[in-house]
Design a protein around this nucleic acid. Structure first.
Lengths: 302, 302
DNA sequence: TCTACTGTGTAGTCTAGCTACATGGACGTC
DNA sequence: GACGTCCATGTAGCTAGACTACACAGTAGA
């Protein structure tokens, strides 16, 4: 009896459809359907049956879904004992983060922490790469990014926890002349008109690399911080920009193209003072951050 | 919190060593050690510590091992509800089986069923391939083998459940001239002296195939049924025999060589009358048989 | 000191579990 | 009735999780 099958049946019971259960468990409906098939084979009984264009649990399936609640409760008991043993983390943890990383991290981190006694106090900040480390003096956790390495500049003496490696792609309008190619190279984009970012930002580093690789100077029309603003400009013109893969919506007239001949992934990391790193609540938040970041990376893997 | 990690800690707690826990869970100590390492990483705390040449659980590890009992109890509750839902199987199930398959199947099947109300009444029988199906009239489950296909001869109208596919190898003494080769071909063994089996046995079919492939007639010194007897003769001479891979001990002066140019795996299957197949207890035994057979196959995979 | 036992690390293999995509069926709208 | 949308499933292919084999180090007993 595989607990994961029980959990899936429970998810299906609660959410009503394979598609919804898939979303909730961060996989595709196809994966869920395959796992349901395996579960039915192993239990040797039909657990879901077709219902219109969806499915519904059979009586057997409902029995097992209910059983999953029993098992989940037992697991929660163990978790509670584990938390008590470790010293249950509580209190306020302050986080400051660059917005584009916060966008894909904090919602789920907050969900994850909802059942704990930890309160998050968050803020966002849009500054140059080298300025992030300094914020660790005033915040429990600083979520920083860097193109050059896991440790952002100025992080000497600080604890750095890698969270994710997020590719930075070339964003363009869906009707851009380059939109039909699979990926782009520096030579493809050097002569285009760009929306840039302020100097010192990791995205700017990518633009510098393009200039170095091609020996030409880019035409940078604007230098803007806010990604949504950048997206809105990219969408209605033939200007292009470097945008992060994990948070740039690609169903709204923008497409992302990988830059294949330049290493253009930024390291997103949590930076914090070592003493703060010892607090259990901070550790718990870091665990949540790493978990969510890992999930997001997995979802975006090609 | 991965239930499998909890179960492993519990197994380690109960059995006292990595090696014993590995044996109990049908894997190598290395695999258990690796899983413990992953568990410690995920729990973020040391769960086992060195103790002499073994390990012992830390306080944290014991807490989680105890937690595994809580979860296991919940799973048992679900299992009990599931059994009740399906109609708890009980009663006597009679099995007759060829000995070499029974040897690697029945001990674990009996263990598996120890907590049920099912009583097994077993017997072994050593007969020709075509004779097995007829036994289904008098036994709930007949464990048969065949070289030609999953369905043994004479199984028309019977339910056939595939259990395993077991290679039949060429067995020889460890000091046999061929003992040093990785595998053998028909041409390598056709001129050797053989211990055979009675006509009509699947092992005999392999010998016929060797004759067909090479166009020569084998020298078959004896025709014997009992594998242990055959092994004892092979061990002290340069005669060779076809023996099954899953049960032939290879740490006692005998080595097994794969016959690479002849398909020489036997199909082991459970044969039973369809009406008997409907009994829950019989289904439960079949489940156990399939499970154990699958485990044995996995263990013997190269 | 030597041998046996135990556990760990590394390299390599295999398949479990996933995604992408195509397809078929159900349902709602026109 | 036709068409578009939604949902689930099946297949092909990929990757990393989980394993084995083997080498090595440490411990214990003779």
């Amino acid at each position: 009896m595989d607990v994961r099958h029980l959990e899936l049946l429970r998810e299906l019971s609660e959410r009503g459809s394979v598609t919804a259960a898939a979303r909730a468990t961060h996989r595709t409906p196809s994966a869920v359907s395959q796992q349901l098939k395996i579960a039915q084979r192993e239990f040797g009984m039909t657990l879901v049956e077709p219902a219109g264009r969806g499915v519904r649990l059979t009586e057997a399936g409902r029995l097992l879904a209910d059983g999953a609640s029993t098992v989940a409760a037992a697991i929660e008991q163990v978790q509670a004992r584990w938390d008590a043993y470790r010293g249950e983390p509580s209190g306020t943890v302050t986080i400051t983060a660059l917005p584009s990383a916060a966008t894909f991290l904090l919602a789920e981190v907050m969900s994850d922490l909802a059942s704990t006694e930890i309160r998050l106090e968050c803020s966002d900040v849009d500054i140059a790469e080298a300025e992030f480390a300094g914020l660790a003096a005033d915040h429990d956790i600083v979520i920083a990014h860097s193109l050059t390495g896991v440790r952002p500049a100025g992080a000497d003496g600080l604890t750095v926890v890698p969270l994710a490696q997020e590719p930075l792609d070339v964003a363009m309008a869906a009707d851009h002349p380059l939109a039909g190619v699979a990926a782009v190279r520096a030579a493809d984009v050097v002569d285009r008109e760009w929306i840039g970012v302020p100097l010192g930002y990791p995205f700017d580093t990518v633009l510098h690399m393009i200039e170095q690789v091609t020996g030409a100077e880019l035409t940078i029309d604007q230098r803007l911080r806010d990604n949504r603003l950048v997206e809105s400009l990219v969408r209605v013109s033939h200007r292009i920009a470097i945008l992060p893969r994990f948070t740039t919506p690609t169903d709204s007239g923008i497409v992302l193209k990988e830059l294949t001949d330049i290493p253009s992934a930024r390291h997103i990391s949590a930076v914090l003072r070592p003493d703060r790193a010892e607090r259990l609540a901070v550790q718990r938040v870091l665990l949540a951050l790493r978990h969510v970041a890992s999930e997001v990376e997995r979802r975006h893997r090609q």
